[in-house]
């Protein structure tokens, strides 16, 4: 049963991959606003440029994700930071057709740690960018996605 869901996951992922070349991104790009551009970006650099931010690496931003994704369509990821005054958390999946995955704006009293599940199409990095003060800090974790193999 497990194998079956796994296959389903990889199949969905490969369809995602194949469609990129087909120019299916176009509908997303019709949006003019800045944020929409970031969501349509196909590389990490473009996404950051669209958001107009520059980042610096920090070991205070922690991405907790499995080393090996058993089901690439459902990869649990937790982003955590020990930075003071974290305001926003941005999540990027480096090798997805659209890299920008999510943005979390943190309100008052919330712990700067958010758990969510993402689709990770190909082996790559899960990147978290945390805004604290006027600066953006980056942390990442490599996630391996296998095709047709057992998780091991």
């Amino acid at each position: 049963m497990k194998r079956r869901t796994f296959l389903k996951g990889t199949l969905a992922a490969s369809v995602t991959g194949a469609a990129v070349g087909g120019g299916l991104l176009a509908p997303n790009m019709a949006f003019a606003s800045e944020a929409a551009d970031a969501y349509a970006a196909t590389s990490m650099e473009d996404a950051l440029k669209a958001l107009g931010i520059t980042t610096e690496d920090s070991d205070k931003v922690e991405v907790i994700a499995p080393d090996l994704a058993e089901n690439s369509a459902v990869v649990p990821v937790e982003v955590k930071t020990t930075l003071e005054g974290a305001e926003e958390i941005h999540v990027f999946i480096s090798n997805n057709p659209t890299v920008y995955a999510a943005k979390f704006k943190l309100g008052e009293g919330i712990d700067p740690a958010v758990k969510c599940r993402y689709k990770v199409g190909k082996t790559g990095d899960v990147i978290a960018v945390v805004k604290a003060g006027d600066k953006y800090y980056m942390g990442k974790k490599a996630v391996k996605v296998t095709k047709g193999g057992c998780g091991g």
């Binding site: 920008y100 995955a101 999510a102 009293g109 958010v114 599940r117 689709k119």
Partner: peptide, 28 residues
Amino acid sequence: TANDKVLLTADWSGTISKNPYLSFNYAG
């Protein structure tokens, strides 16, 4: 929101998995 105060605003894309799950803690 908690007691009408915003705790978290999330902007998502299609990259979030099917049947999205979200979890966090707050001082309440």
